[in-house]
């Protein structure tokens, strides 16, 4: 069930080259007025019309939640990806009209925290841009540790340092700077909550280190930036709607289901929120599960799949859709 309208008509008001990999996009309401208030960590889903194909990609809002005259997102170009980031980089220009969703927050601040300890890797910095702005506006206690490759790719490190000074700690790979996580975690005051956003390896490392140091699971928050990966095309039977579809190399299963005219529910399109969970009726082949929602047991059972990020290789697959 969906209530009300989830789509907002916006106009691109500015496109800013941040560095060789990242561009920033500014959106305002096409018909005027402020955009909906949001909370730090929220994302919007951006609709892209790309040569007859519709892409729906989630991006974290990085502008201040205290100022919703416009929304901004930053997109890192992924030359090996399925083309969403390339579309944003190549095709989206100021003045263009686009459609975005209402904000959704799956990476929310825990407002019980006495202190917010944030760890970012690469483009994983974007949700923290909004969260730090939200906290700073209310005198919140936070500290951000940000790992990047080099100065040229330290996206927004200059902005953050100018705003928050010594609360920002930068670690540049090419300078051999390394975050001493064990030490950092062992010197935090009681009531500290930990947030991590970055590459999968970093999230795994931070979670494992925190668990080893005795941090309760409830105090460790993380956001995977799991874009669907391209893969070999495969065929699927949608049993409820009695439709056969083919999932293309650069298409996700969810996108192929939508292209067939179905509207399964979704929020994150990144294998985290659980909304598009789909039952498998029968299969002959191998699942390529890429989600963080289903349990390992679910993965092994062959009974469920998350069509937003997971794929299939084999002879036949029939889904309850």
């Amino acid at each position: 069930m969906r209530a009300g309208s989830n789509r907002i008509d916006v106009t691109v008001t500015d496109v800013v080259v941040v560095n060789e990999l990242v561009k920033r996009f500014h959106f305002e309401r096409t018909h005027g007025g402020i955009l909906p208030t949001f909370s730090g960590g929220a994302h919007v889903v951006v609709e892209m019309r790309d040569e007859g194909k519709t892409r729906l990609n989630p991006y974290s809002l990085m502008s201040s939640p205290l100022d919703t005259r416009d929304y901004t997102i930053s997109v890192r170009r992924d030359d090996a990806g399925r083309g969403g980031s390339l579309f944003m980089h190549r095709e989206v220009k100021p003045g263009q009209r686009m459609v975005i969703s209402n904000p959704v927050n799956l990476f929310s601040l825990d407002l019980r925290a006495k202190k917010h300890l944030m760890i970012a890797g690469g483009i994983g910095i974007t949700p923290f841009m909004a969260q730090t702005a939200q906290l700073a506006g209310r005198g919140g206690n936070f500290e951000l540790h940000y790992a990047c490759r080099n100065d040229a790719l330290a996206t927004y490190a200059d902005v953050l340092t100018a705003r928050y000074d010594r609360r920002i700690h930068l670690y540049r790979d090419d300078h051999g700077e390394k975050l001493d996580l064990e030490k950092l975690l062992s010197t935090q005051p009681l009531g500290t909550y930990l947030y991590v956003c970055g590459p999968a390896g970093m999230i795994k490392w931070v979670r494992a280190t925190a668990a080893e140091a005795g941090w309760p699971d409830e105090t460790v928050h993380f956001e995977h930036f799991a874009a669907p990966q391209p893969g070999k095309p495969f065929d699927v039977r949608l049993a409820v709607s009695e439709v056969d579809i083919r999932v293309g190399e650069h298409e996700s299963l969810l996108e192929a289901i939508e292209a067939a005219g179905l509207n399964p529910p979704y929020l994150c399109r990144g294998g985290v929120c659980g909304q598009c969970e789909t039952n498998v009726i029968s299969y002959d082949g191998k699942f390529l599960h890429n989600d963080h929602w289903l349990s390992e047991e679910d993965h092994r059972s062959g009974c469920k799949i998350m069509p937003c990020v997971s794929r299939f290789e084999g002879k036949s697959l029939t889904l309850e859709r």
């Binding site: 069930m1 209530a3 009300g4 309208s5 989830n6 909906p36 209402n102 529910p265 929020l267």
Partner: peptide, 13 residues
């Protein structure tokens, strides 16, 4: 609970 956790802004129920 599953429904409520996924409830979105601007779409009350």
């Amino acid at each position: 609970l599953k429904f409520l956790m996924a409830l979105q802004q601007g779409q009350p129920a």
